[in-house]
Write a protein that binds this DNA or RNA. Structure first.
Lengths: 337, 337
DNA sequence: GGTGCTCAAGAAAACGGTTTCTCAAGATGC
DNA sequence: GCATCTTGAGAAACCGTTTTCTTGAGCACC
């Protein structure tokens, strides 16, 4: 009755329900989990919470989980040593999670072996763990990077540099490859599209700028593989007293909060955390419904350019304060979005 | 045996343990919780994860929880409506959490009544919920704000403004009062220490600057009640082409990541998230050990000035590019830390 | 009216551990 | 040597739900 069937008098039902509330009764979820064999807990593994990319993702994922009455167990990978990591994964199993979303972009699955052993549904990003009951969320880097490059090309830029993350990670290769394809598509050649391999830190941005400005043919626009590094690029430029976007344009990737508050506000390729979370959650729901070795299609998530004020038309003047030109450029860019 | 007593042959014990591992056995924590009556889950309530103050706090708290074999259930208050909030609190009770750390700075406890009803240990910040089994973490705003004001006074500033958060919150009153006390201590008068009430957003910073610059006696230094607003102040100044710290000094509060990456890097009063998390966790452990109506002393957490590059000596020149002076000033300030 | 069927309510078993109880063997004291 | 205390192993009860099983009532049909 309490669980919602309608075989008894509605009025009586209401009275009973009121009495239950009155006494402050709340079912014990542990007991329920034990009895039903369903814990209603999901695992969520991220790189780390202090990476500004993740809080939004976690929040979206939690919201989804909440509306479906799931709890989530959060674990970050980066600052943990292997010992800690294994402990965390073991706890996931001990709490009998019904599935785990692995939202980190590195592609080694060793630390997940305990989950695989217990045949727990898994959702990963970019690349699948080698096993059944694993679903991939494929981020479509190309769509957003294409937009970024076309935006720059439209503004007249013919020399566009790229700051990548560590190329040992599959995801960073994918981003760089997307960049190289895009610039080729708008007719630029390899020597006009230099790539600098950074490490996704703030400092890498300043280092990249040091490198690019030492080139004979300096790029007039820079695309960075993540926002933090792009902000580092902005800082490096500001320290060299170079004006953005008058002298050089900068585009980031991710669209973290900081991008909006950067100086100038950073144009960037947005990878929607909401979409990512939704894809991951949906994927888990799908996997949990099929207990058989079920291998569904990957879920794709698009990326998209967000134009702010760090991009403007290419000019040859090195010191020109082309303020009015910039305004026009920005307006044009915005309308192109 | 499995739980670690030493009554049987050590070798046999090892063999048994190996066999257990071999078979992939892991105890079911739900069953354990049900049997023992201890869930080993703690609640952690924060304002919201996308507020850059919190990720570090959550991480620290999680680390502590992990080493003591606790799980945490995370909930954010801000973006939830009352309906959602009540659901979350109810879930805390349903999972039979052993205690809840309420790490949000607002002081209304209505939404916690379910926790109070079930006599669940509570740790709060700044002010205690009106009940037993509740422990307060008292943030010592005065220590850090004193340091900030003395730092500015030493640099020659005699007109120091304050941007507060919404004064309906107890915590913001405390910060403002600490400011007023501090400036009085270094001999400044009310008319030279104007206060602007903002709302802790980025935009509030620009608004505050608009107000302060319209005053007849402009302040030469600004202390903000949080970092995001301070960054907004920096932005407002930059839009007015005013140099920081040559023309005006700025100090924030909190020491979020962004502070370091601001332009220029923001001097700020650090409220240590590690300390806060440690205090909260310790408090919960203390409370859970005493089931009786036990009212322990509050735990105090200090704040501390961090000097970066947004503060420099007061100069009368409005447009002077006092670069060398600034360098010296910064160095002096650093050594004073 | 007896037989077979459906249905729902209540009892019992299960979930996987912890905690408590029981009881017999061994140690201790006189 | 006998009564008492201590010890530890194994059995039993328990935690609070869900799930399955049992039972008996109600009903249609021949």
């Amino acid at each position: 009755m309490v669980n919602g069937q309608l075989t008894v008098d509605a009025k009586l039902a209401k009275r009973v329900r009121d009495a239950i509330r009155e006494m402050g009764y709340l079912p014990n979820l542990q007991a329920r989990a034990l009895g039903s064999g369903r814990s209603r807990v999901l695992g969520l593994i991220i790189s780390e919470l202090t990476n500004p990319f993740y809080p939004e993702l976690v929040r979206s994922f939690e919201d989804l989980a909440e509306t479906s009455d799931f709890e989530i167990m959060l674990g970050s990978v980066i600052h943990k040593n292997d010992e800690h990591l294994n402990r965390f994964v073991r706890r996931l199993v001990q709490r009998r999670v019904e599935g785990v979303a692995v939202m980190t972009f590195r592609a080694d699955w060793d630390y997940l072996h305990e989950l695989i052993l217990h045949n727990i549904p898994l959702v990963t990003i970019d690349a699948a763990a080698p096993r059944a009951r694993c679903l991939v969320v494929e981020v479509d880097y190309r769509s957003g990077i294409d937009q970024a490059i076309q935006h720059l090309a439209l503004l007249g830029h013919r020399r566009i540099a790229f700051v990548s993350g560590p190329l040992q990670h599959f995801t960073n290769q994918a981003r760089r490859d997307a960049f190289l394809d895009s610039v080729r598509k708008v007719g630029l050649r390899a020597k006009d599209t230099p790539v600098y391999e950074g490490d996704h830190t703030f400092e890498a941005g300043a280092a990249a700028i040091g490198h690019f400005l030492s080139l004979r043919d300096r790029p007039t626009a820079i695309l960075s593989s993540n926002d933090l590094t792009a902000v580092g690029v902005l800082r490096g430029l500001s320290e060299r007293r170079m004006q953005v976007p008058e002298e050089i344009s900068v585009i980031g990737f991710d669209d973290i909060h900081m991008a909006e508050f950067a100086h100038p506000p950073l144009s960037t390729v947005r990878m929607s955390r909401e979409d990512l979370a939704a894809a991951a959650f949906q994927g888990l729901m799908r996997l949990t419904q099929h207990s058989s070795p079920y291998a569904p299609e990957p879920i794709r998530v698009k990326t998209q350019l967000v134009v702010r004020q760090s991009t403007g038309p290419q000019t040859n003047a090195v010191t020109a304060k082309a303020d009015s030109a910039r305004r026009t450029g920005t307006a044009a860019a915005c309308s192109g979005e």
